[in-house]
Simulated scan of single mutants.
Amino acid sequence: MAEQPGNQTPDTPDVDETELRGMKADELRARARELNVSGASDMRKEELVHAVATATQEGESGGVRTGPESSKSLKYSQEITSPDDDPERPGRSLVTTGHEVIRQWAEQRDAAPATVEGTEHDDHLGVLRFDFPGYGGEDLRHVEWDEWFATFDERGLNFIYQEERGDGSQSNFFRLENPGREDA
């Protein structure tokens, strides 16, 4: 049977499986570990392709990542999987890995995706941040959304945030957390 180009797994429309099949099995296993796929070390290549495609899509749609270093904040946060989801109450801590949720939150605050200058290593972005208008401080370099999200997913991060404060005013609070590492 000839290999079909593109995506053959249902419910993973944004994942290019041809690209995944071009990766070595060890690269796929590493990617599977980053996505918290269990049992990856025992999977064959085609199983890895399917598992990574599915886990990638889940990460893009909001599946919260958990691990040994998950914070209490994560435990008590309401999971948001879609830009259409609403907080249960003002001031509620929220958590997502959904790209559209994060992008919409930042754009509503005129915040641009950024990295902290000087924290890069090799060709990889350093510390991820948002540049909010009117706030100075760290030396931030604006980056493209695709690069910001690729780094966010590669590091297995969660986006913990608030839509609004307890008094109903807009909140800019956010935190990035890697539940698999103490030093995220």
Score class of each variant (00 low, 15 high):
residue 149 F to M: 12
residue 26 D to M: 03
residue 14 D to I: 03
residue 104 Q to W: 03
residue 73 S to R: 06
residue 82 S to F: 06
residue 137 G to C: 01
residue 100 E to D: 12
residue 142 H to F: 02
residue 136 G to N: 08
residue 142 H to I: 11
residue 145 W to E: 14
residue 65 R to C: 01
residue 2 A to R: 08
residue 132 F to S: 05
residue 120 E to F: 05
residue 71 S to Q: 12
residue 21 R to C: 00
residue 11 D to F: 15
residue 131 D to A: 11
residue 180 G to R: 12
residue 139 D to V: 05
residue 141 R to P: 00
residue 158 N to W: 06
residue 113 P to F: 05
residue 120 E to W: 04
residue 172 N to W: 11
residue 150 A to Q: 13
residue 106 A to C: 00
residue 184 A to I: 00
residue 33 R to G: 00
residue 16 D to P: 01
residue 131 D to V: 02
residue 34 E to G: 06
residue 178 N to Y: 14
residue 183 D to V: 06
residue 33 R to H: 12
residue 128 L to G: 07
residue 166 G to Q: 12
residue 27 E to Q: 15
residue 113 P to Q: 10
residue 67 G to W: 05
residue 104 Q to T: 15
residue 38 S to L: 06
residue 154 E to N: 09
residue 40 A to T: 03
residue 147 E to N: 13
residue 76 Y to I: 14
residue 96 T to V: 09
residue 81 T to V: 15
residue 101 V to S: 07
residue 149 F to G: 01
residue 72 K to F: 11
residue 16 D to W: 04
residue 35 L to I: 07
residue 160 I to Y: 07
residue 171 S to R: 13
residue 70 S to H: 06
residue 27 E to F: 00
residue 11 D to K: 15
residue 183 D to H: 14
residue 181 R to A: 09
residue 151 T to H: 02
residue 28 L to H: 08
residue 84 D to F: 07
residue 28 L to V: 07
residue 172 N to R: 14
residue 115 T to C: 05
residue 58 E to F: 11
residue 71 S to Y: 09
residue 106 A to H: 06
residue 133 P to A: 05
residue 64 V to G: 02
residue 98 G to L: 04
residue 141 R to F: 00
residue 125 L to N: 08
residue 38 S to P: 01
residue 89 R to P: 00
residue 55 A to L: 04
residue 173 F to P: 00
residue 70 S to D: 14
residue 13 P to A: 07
residue 36 N to G: 02
residue 159 F to V: 09
residue 116 V to D: 03
residue 92 R to E: 15
residue 150 A to C: 00
residue 169 S to H: 13
residue 8 Q to N: 09
residue 49 V to Y: 05
residue 91 G to Q: 10
residue 74 L to C: 07
residue 131 D to N: 14
residue 86 D to H: 07
residue 148 W to T: 10
residue 22 G to E: 15
residue 152 F to Y: 13
residue 23 M to D: 05
residue 124 H to I: 01
residue 149 F to A: 03
residue 162 Q to L: 12
residue 142 H to G: 08
residue 36 N to V: 10
residue 163 E to T: 08
residue 108 Q to G: 01
residue 172 N to T: 14
residue 79 E to P: 08
residue 144 E to I: 00
residue 88 E to W: 01
residue 161 Y to G: 07
residue 132 F to W: 06
residue 48 L to I: 04
residue 82 S to R: 12
residue 33 R to V: 04
residue 77 S to T: 10
